[in-house]
Design a protein around this nucleic acid. Sequence first.
DNA 1: CTATCCTGTCAACATGGTTGACCTATCAAG
DNA 2: CTTGATAGGTCAACCATGTTGACAGGATAG
Lengths: 148, 148
Amino acid sequence: MREAIELFYFAYRAFTAEADQILDQSGLGRVHHRILYFVGRNPDLSVNDLLAILGVTKQALHAPLRALLDRKLVTHRPGEDRRVKRLRLTDAGLTLEARLTGVQLQHLARVFAATGAKAEREWKTVMRSLPGRSIPRRRIKRTGLPAG
Amino acid sequence: MREAIELFYFAYRAFTAEADQILDQSGLGRVHHRILYFVGRNPDLSVNDLLAILGVTKQALHAPLRALLDRKLVTHRPGEDRRVKRLRLTDAGLTLEARLTGVQLQHLARVFAATGAKAEREWKTVMRSLPGRSIPRRRIKRTGLPAG
DNA sequence: CTATCCTGTCAACATGGTTGACCTATCAAG
DNA sequence: CTTGATAGGTCAACCATGTTGACAGGATAG
């Protein structure tokens, strides 16, 4: 049972290592990846919702988001409520995000292919029940995130 | 399938959150926990092997390990080769480690109790195959992975 | 008009990681 | 014994990423 703790530690490290390498070559970090990922999955996400998902302060998000905007990987436009910015990936952003997410998907696909469909299903079941309900603090626009 | 990526992110965060809170109250960090954990699981571990497991430089390990030695949570004594230090947990170290690991074990136990023995088995199977090969015991390359 | 919300930004600071350099011991081999 | 490699400790500079706190501006709700 104690093995499970180590598994989590090493598996998570292994899982993120490949994408980290790509990010490193682009001069970006894991936060940039997360922004790309969650904006990609939730087009027109607001800054506030992004903060809630990532669980960081706006000051922590500021620099990486600024960098992505400057590199034209992310754009924004005013929403109905013109105070909020709706974030979206540019084409270049979509491309990079697909590349990053791709190596992780392939990693998982390799593993699931080796372990079987049943293992995949059960793994997800376990992973889904791990967060309890502590993570999402706000309602998010589009779906795809762990529900509250 | 993309869901699996998010699951990893959120599940890992949730999994470490409780222990982090206890550590925070003791003025310690995740690195201290990892040291306590791996020394606890591998009594008479050498500093070098610990570095290899954690994948950090000796300078990064220095301060946290120093702190644990000063607080008498960890001790060392010379090995056969008197250059190497064999690390062990003190009684106090064992107590704290058990408390920290305890919340994670209980967390997992709760989840496995809810999802079933089959889910537990399959989950471990998947997690074991994620790092490519199983838990590195000795002599791995220090890759310097970003903290997560 | 006023209060509140969403966003952006500056500054101070903490933590934890990296290199690089230099030090002591200890061991192994010539 | 001398030489060189190994295990470990430590100082310093630096970078990345997070935190609080404060403040400003535009937009909206009352």
